[in-house]
Computed example of a mutant assay.
Amino acid sequence: MKTAFLRLHLAVLLAGFTGVLGRLISLNEGLLVWYRLLISAVSLWLLFGLQRKISAIPFRKMLSITGVGFIAALHWVTFYGSIKYSNVSVGLVCFSAIGFFTALVEPILLKRRFIWQELLLGLLVMAGIYVIFHFDPRYKTGILIGLLSALLAAIFPVLNRQLLKTVNVETLTTYEISGGLVTLSLLLPVYLQQFPPDHFWPTWTDLGWLLFLSWFCTVWAFQLSAYALKYISAFTVNLSYNLEPVYGIILAFLIYRENEYLGWNFYLGLLMIIIALSLQMLRVYKARNKST
């Protein structure tokens, strides 16, 4: 359990870089995610293929994994869209709604009862986002897209945990990233027609950041998170990912000085989200001690 938590928080730390990278890379959100998936898929097939860690799976299972990969791809597109329509800090705070959506989605998908403590903690996070939105309507579009991103992110690990019961981490990660690439490739022409980009090809600077995003924040973080899901519930994993905004916001403050454009309401909302995370981790710790 301790190793699982360490891997999980390392994955969260890596994820904290993704918001800043979304602003550093000049491509629009659709192309950014497509290149991220392309580099990650090629890297995974080479890495795990040479190590012979990719197992053959039935076609129906492959379709299921592809579907989950598509959900992950849509989450990333909306996540970066939220950042580009608002800023890094606001986009990352919206991601914290993942706890609330998981408390709703996980019981429905797994056909178990709702846990009121999870719902209350999730509602505290939503209240924090509302405080930011209510007092600062400038970021309305970015916040709405960010909430959609959080909903998609909540669905992904719940489904992923079920797949991990029958498929090893390396195979699952490789097929999910590849499935996300294929399905997003089919959707991308329509998307780019609706949201025309300034340019289609990444600059050399963009390419360097895309490699970092793909190799460290995707391939490695995916593995770490998947291993953690074997021992930790999807709700705890998702709520732990609320630290991603904290890491990302600190980076945004240091690099882009976004703190100069945010009012008191942002910090109040962020404090409410941090309290929700702390209470959940305390609840998990007490439950673990009780069981042992």
Rank of each mutant, 00 (worst) to 15 (best):
residue 18 T to P: 02
residue 285 Y to D: 06
residue 103 A to P: 00
residue 26 S to Y: 12
residue 34 W to S: 08
residue 42 V to I: 14
residue 86 S to W: 01
residue 73 A to Q: 01
residue 140 K to C: 10
residue 122 G to D: 11
residue 162 Q to K: 15
residue 63 L to D: 06
residue 289 N to E: 10
residue 47 L to N: 08
residue 252 A to V: 11
residue 260 E to C: 02
residue 257 R to I: 00
residue 163 L to A: 04
residue 279 L to V: 14
residue 4 A to E: 07
residue 44 L to T: 04
residue 260 E to G: 00
residue 96 S to P: 00
residue 101 F to G: 07
residue 13 L to A: 13
residue 227 Y to I: 09
residue 249 I to N: 11
residue 270 L to W: 02
residue 283 R to E: 15
residue 139 Y to C: 08
residue 250 I to F: 12
residue 78 T to Y: 14
residue 13 L to F: 15
residue 256 Y to R: 05
residue 108 I to H: 02
residue 20 V to K: 07
residue 268 L to R: 00
residue 292 T to Y: 12
residue 273 I to R: 04
residue 14 L to R: 03
residue 87 N to S: 05
residue 235 F to K: 03
residue 79 F to V: 08
residue 19 G to H: 13
residue 278 S to I: 10
residue 10 L to I: 14
residue 97 A to N: 05
residue 240 S to E: 05
residue 159 L to A: 04
residue 224 L to I: 04
residue 76 W to D: 02
residue 220 W to E: 05
residue 208 G to T: 06
residue 131 V to R: 09
residue 138 R to G: 07
residue 82 S to Q: 03
residue 143 I to L: 03
residue 210 L to W: 13
residue 114 F to P: 07
residue 87 N to V: 02
residue 208 G to C: 06
residue 255 I to S: 03
residue 223 Q to N: 09
residue 256 Y to E: 04
residue 251 L to Y: 04
residue 149 S to W: 11
residue 43 S to C: 14
residue 106 E to W: 04
residue 69 G to N: 02
residue 194 Q to A: 13
residue 192 L to C: 05
residue 72 A to T: 14
residue 96 S to K: 02
residue 39 I to F: 07
residue 22 G to K: 12
residue 245 P to E: 03
residue 60 R to G: 00
residue 182 V to D: 01
residue 36 R to C: 05
residue 104 L to K: 13
residue 266 F to S: 00
residue 134 H to M: 14
residue 79 F to N: 01
residue 233 S to L: 08
residue 180 G to H: 02
residue 286 K to L: 12
residue 258 E to S: 02
residue 206 D to S: 09
residue 45 W to H: 13
residue 133 F to Q: 15
residue 105 V to K: 00
residue 52 R to P: 05
residue 207 L to V: 06
residue 64 S to D: 08
residue 41 A to K: 05
residue 23 R to W: 10
residue 262 L to K: 04
residue 138 R to C: 01
residue 45 W to A: 08
residue 75 H to G: 07
residue 193 Q to P: 09
